[in-house]
Computed example of a mutant assay.
Amino acid sequence: MRCPARSPRVAALVSAGLSWAIEFAQLGEIPPVLRPLLGSTFNPPDLLWYAVGAGVACAVHTVTRARLAR
C-alpha cells in the first residue's frame, strides 16, 4: 500500500484552508441549493476545530507514512 505523494503538512494546510474558506463563506448568502452541503451559519469555534482536525490528520498521516517506509 502506498502513501499519497502529498506531504502531511501540505494536506493538512489545504484541508484546513478549504474548511475555513467554506466557514467564512457562510458570513455571506449561501444559495439554498448549497446550504445542505455547505451549511448556512457561521460559527467561530468551528475554525478552531478545523485546525485541530487537520493537525490530528497530519499526525496520523506522518506516522502512517513512517511505518510504511520501513
Rank of each mutant, 00 (worst) to 15 (best):
P32L: 11
E29R: 15
V10G: 11
E29S: 13
A16S: 13
A25H: 01
E29W: 11
P32A: 15
R35N: 00
G39K: 00
V14I: 15
R9D: 12
A25K: 01
V33E: 15
R35Q: 10
L18Y: 03
P31F: 10
L13K: 08
E23T: 01
S19Q: 11
E29T: 09
L37N: 04
G17R: 06
V10N: 12
P32H: 06
A12L: 08
S15L: 13
Q26D: 06
G28I: 04
A21V: 08
E23V: 01
G39C: 07
S15N: 10
S15I: 09
F24I: 09
A12R: 03
L34F: 10
V33C: 02
P31E: 10
L13A: 15
P36S: 05
L18E: 09
L27Q: 12
P31Y: 09
S19V: 06
A12Q: 06
E29H: 13
L37R: 06
L37T: 04
E23D: 07
L27N: 07
W20G: 01
G39T: 01
G39A: 07
F24G: 02
I30G: 00
V33D: 13
R9T: 08
A21S: 14
R35S: 02
A11C: 11
V14K: 08
P36D: 08
A25C: 05
Q26P: 01
P32E: 14
R9K: 14
R35Y: 00
I22L: 13
V10R: 15
A16G: 12
P36R: 00
S15A: 14
E23H: 05
A12S: 11
A21L: 14
A11L: 14
F24A: 05
E23M: 06
G28A: 15
F24M: 12
S15W: 11
L37Y: 14
S19M: 13
R35L: 03
F24C: 04
L38F: 13
R9E: 11
F24P: 02
L38V: 05
E29C: 02
I30S: 00
Q26W: 07
L37M: 12
I30R: 00
V14G: 04
E23R: 03
E23C: 03
E23G: 02
A12H: 05
A25E: 01
E29Y: 09
W20M: 10
L38E: 08
P31C: 04
R35W: 00
G39N: 03
G39H: 00
E23Y: 07
R9P: 01
L38D: 08
G17H: 08
I30N: 00
A11H: 10
S19H: 11
